[in-house]
Computed example of a mutant assay.
Amino acid sequence: MPAGGWPLRVVDGALDFLAARIDHPEPVSDTVRTVTGRPARTLREWAVEHAGHFR
C-alpha cells in the first residue's frame, strides 16, 4: 500500500481495522436474502459460476 502512494497513517489504520476483525468479526446479516429473496452465495459459488468470464 505504501508503494501505491498510501500515507503510512492510512495504512496503519487499515491494518489495525482488519486486525480487530480477527477477534471481533462483523455480525452476519440476512440483508441479501431480505433484498433478493434468496440466500447469499459464497465467493466460491460465485467464482465457479463466473470462471468462464476470466478465461
Rank of each mutant, 00 (worst) to 15 (best):
A19S: 13
A20E: 10
A40Q: 00
A20F: 07
T34F: 06
H24Y: 08
T34Q: 15
M1R: 10
D30S: 07
P27S: 04
V48R: 14
P27L: 04
V11Q: 07
R44S: 08
S29I: 10
R41F: 04
D30E: 07
T42W: 01
T42P: 03
D16K: 13
G4N: 06
R44L: 07
V28A: 09
G5W: 02
R41V: 01
R21K: 15
L8E: 09
T31S: 06
L8Q: 14
R55G: 07
W46H: 03
V32Y: 15
D23V: 03
M1I: 10
V28F: 13
V32N: 05
H50G: 04
R33V: 02
T36F: 13
E26M: 14
A20H: 15
L8H: 02
H53T: 05
V35D: 01
T34R: 15
P27H: 02
E45S: 05
F54T: 05
R55T: 10
D16M: 05
I22L: 15
G4F: 12
W6R: 07
D16G: 03
M1Q: 09
R9A: 13
V10P: 03
A3H: 08
P25R: 08
V28H: 06
R38S: 10
A19R: 15
H50S: 02
L8V: 13
R55D: 03
S29W: 05
A19N: 12
V35S: 04
A3R: 14
V48G: 01
W46Y: 09
R55E: 07
A47E: 01
R41M: 09
V10A: 14
A19C: 11
R9E: 13
A51R: 12
A14I: 14
D16S: 11
V10F: 11
T36K: 11
G52Y: 04
D30Y: 09
D23M: 06
